[in-house]
């Protein structure tokens, strides 16, 4: 049994926690599934590996009955990004720090399904093996071994805080900020294109959106009781999945995430049609960094960027 399983078992058996949210094995080789652990037997099924891509913090706000009513204190297994989402919730007064028990796990990145798809040219993976830094994918007529790094999510490759900085318990030794190169490369490359090219790309990409709202619903930072797209009095946006309304949905979501996106990549991995949802979120993140020197979810005592004002802030967007 792993140390993580043991600790969760202990926390449940001594009644410190009555619910722990973690990951368990999924029904397919490259997929894990969120798990609601209430018993010692459940605790034995907990896993943590590069398939654990869901941001579990999202469950704290998705079902408001859960916290405070059904459970006094909830434990969550957290990667760096999950922990940042919890910090964000605390700064936004959605969750009290003492309501959650954070169990940090050392994260070395999670797998992005699109990269697997590209690698196997769409063929189904029936078995995976991760040994050290390498991953082996097996299907009916192929076997491919590549460095794990090659199939990790872009969010992970540009992540400076892979381990939780806010935690109650950490399995192993947490790393503080790690150095990454080209954190905003995806934005820089995109900005280097002409405005026509950028517009064409956005139009093509978002025209494929089917408006299933998986991106919004897995997003830990999207927790409005009623999203603007669901309001019908007034109706802000056409419900038709046509490119103009799709773009309005995505761009407004991008702006609503200003100073709030932790770049966990949950939206990217949730999208059933594999839209590139990261580029615009990262652009907004870059703006927040440059203008306000603000990165979401790092400091539990900091006010949210959009709820505070400093006199020395750059105001060139107003003053011209």
């Amino acid at each position: 049994m792993t140390e993580l399983q043991n600790k969760i078992k202990e926390l449940i058996s001594n009644k410190t926690l009555d619910l722990v949210i973690g990951w368990g094995n999924g029904s397919m080789p490259l997929v894990s599934t969120p798990m609601f652990i209430k018993s010692e037997a459940d605790a034995e099924k907990v896993i943590f590996d590069p398939t654990c891509r869901n941001n579990l913090a999202t469950y704290l706000t998705k079902d408001k009955r859960r916290l405070g009513k059904d459970y006094e204190k909830i434990g969550i297994v957290v990667k760096g990004c999950d922990a940042r989402s919890v910090v964000l919730y605390v700064t936004e007064n959605q969750v009290r720090r003492d309501q959650v028990f954070l169990i940090g796990v050392p994260c070395h990145g999670v797998i992005e399904k699109k990269k697997i798809f590209d690698l196997t040219e769409g063929r189904e993976v029936l078995e995976k093996k991760i040994i050290g830094e390498k991953i082996t994918l097996k299907g009916r007529e192929f076997e491919i071994t590549v460095p794990l790094h090659d199939v990790l999510s872009d969010s992970c490759l540009g992540c400076r805080y892979p381990d939780a900085r806010e935690f109650d318990l950490f399995i192993g030794e947490p790393r503080d900020e790690v150095e990454v190169k080209g954190e905003f490369k995806v934005v820089d490359d995109f900005e280097a294109k002409s405005s026509e090219e950028r517009w064409d790309y956005i139009k093509d990409e978002y025209s494929r959106c089917i408006r299933c709202y998986a991106c919004r619903n897995v997003c830990p930072s999207c927790y409005c009781n009623e999203c603007f797209v669901d309001q019908n009095d007034p109706q802000w946006i056409g419900k038709t999945p046509e490119v103009t309304d799709n773009i309005i949905f995505h761009l407004i979501r991008n702006l609503h995430l200003a100073g709030r996106c932790v770049d966990c990549g949950a939206c990217v991995s949730a999208c059933p049609v594999n839209l590139n949802l990261r580029i615009m979120n990262k652009k907004v993140e870059k703006e927040m960094k440059e203008r306000f020197d603000y990165t979401a979810g790092l400091d539990i005592n900091e006010k949210p960027a959009m709820a505070t004002y400093c006199e020395n802030e750059k105001q060139d967007f107003i003053m011209g």
């Binding site: 998705k62 089917i210 619903n217 419900k239 949730a270 059933p272």
Partner: peptide, 23 residues
């Protein structure tokens, strides 16, 4: 139902789901 996040991905890719809205 605990882990469902209530997106419509399953229904929208499903060949038999047929609920609709009129706008």
């Amino acid at each position: 139902g605990a882990k469902c996040i209530n997106c419509g991905a399953c229904a929208y890719v499903c060949p038999t789901c047929h609920c609709f809205d009129v706008s």
